[in-house]
Nucleic acid binder design. Structure first.
Lengths: 241, 241
DNA sequence: TTGTCTTATTGTATTTTATACTATAACTAT
DNA sequence: ATAGTTATAGTATAAAATACAATAAGACAA
């Protein structure tokens, strides 16, 4: 109960797992380190140290805004990663100190989940060499505990969908087909869904509204397009809860 | 991207919301500050700065162990609170600096949920003047954002129960009646449950096993006692997931 | 012993929701 | 015209959730 150094004083960052859906599988947005260091081509989750005047949500919004240009993206804090071992790799620490021009001994991170339409044009961010989508099943080994963070985010997204079903539409174009929606659910739950039962369920959900429009440029029967109606959704949620 | 001070460097604490159930309502375990300062009789959540060598889970276990003597209490990290404004109150900061003998400018906290049988004898902890249970509906104004933390923990406990129904038994004595269990659910969900439907459901759950024992010393018909069977529970969970 | 009080215990009918199935229609491309 | 591909839709069954009330058991007091 005395020495100045037994308590953790540290830097705190946010890291964002941004999901996108390419009509087949979930993808995660990764950035390429731009450190002018050898062996620094690694991919990692986008993130940032938190600024003095910010809270963690604001920092995450800032990171996401840099990537997408969207001011207030849908996001959700989901877990803090605090192991002293997460800055065990000297190369990671070297990159950190280069990128932030600060000596960094210990770093904890607060991880965020976010969702983005995969066709959206992304900004180029000075801090990084490039950014790109990566299928969740083909993730490279990443620095820090970023692989573990993605792992846990995959469980979190299911809980999130159950709590707030509307978030899935952030992953789809504004007009989408029933099979796109079904494949998205299959990707999130990693489980095949019965086509007919799914159809029945969608029919019964009033905030998923069928349009008088169909797909174009497909080499088979064109499917009907649907849209998500946020107003109807909010009404429904208000009556249930 | 330059100055040494634009990034947050800070102390990190854990705060624990420990729930107890007094066969009627949920209670939270609060500690009384022991700061030898005027106006320092405030109640707050038990917590601690994180030590250098620890991760947050270990710090939370340490705090809970101090309170209850239990080495590995069931706990769950549920949210980080990071607003720069949380150390706005000079009195809170004075208490912090007194308690930890460190100058503390900014402090974020990682909050934990935990559960405890309310009749358990609690330790006396040097750092605090006293500890006691407080009904969730009668919480005093607490320092920092502890009121908000409890608020959000009440939503979190419902999600936790849905994910892992076994945790409710951490709040009950090892032998309990059906109505105790029902009242606990009613307290968690803040909703009355139909007695007969609840009964039917309990009958169908094999890991809630009826005993050949009844309540004693009650001024009415004594109810049957039940126990929770962890082995049967684990079997069931293994077959479902 | 009787009656009153309090809580324990239980079943049935209905509705809603989930599941397990396949046949045909529409469109494209050859 | 035909083959290939995906879209679309209904029925029967099972499981789960809901609504609803009468009787039993024991404690206690008169």
């Amino acid at each position: 109960m005395s020495g100045k150094d037994q308590f953790m004083r540290t830097y705190v960052s946010v890291d964002c797992v941004v999901f996108g859906f390419d009509s087949n599988q979930l993808n995660v947005l990764l950035v390429e380190r731009n450190a002018q260091l050898p062996n620094s081509r690694d991919l990692k989750l986008p993130g940032s140290l938190i600024y003095q005047h910010e809270n963690a949500d604001e920092a995450a919004h800032r990171v996401l805004n840099e990537l997408t240009g969207i001011k207030k993206m849908t996001l959700k804090q989901f877990k803090s990663f605090t192991s002293p071992k997460r800055t065990q790799n000297p190369e990671d620490v070297r990159w950190l100190e280069f990128a932030y021009n600060n000596k960094i001994d210990r770093l904890i991170t607060i991880s965020y989940l976010s969702l983005c339409k995969i066709n959206r044009r992304l900004n180029s961010v000075a801090k990084y060499q490039s950014l790109d989508w990566c299928p969740v099943n083909e993730l490279p080994a990443m620095p820090f505990d970023h692989n573990q963070i993605v792992e846990e985010s995959l469980e979190e997204i299911r809980r999130w969908v159950e709590f707030d079903p509307a978030i899935v539409f952030e992953l789809l174009p504004s007009k989408f087909t029933e099979s796109e929606l079904r494949k998205l659910y299959e990707a999130i739950y990693r489980k095949e869904l019965d086509v007919r039962n799914f159809h029945k369920k969608i029919l019964g959900i009033e905030y998923i509204v069928p349009l008088d429009e169909r797909q174009s440029n497909v080499a088979h029967r064109a499917a009907r397009l649907y849209k998500f109606d946020k107003i109807l959704y909010n009404k429904r949620m208000a009556t249930i809860e």
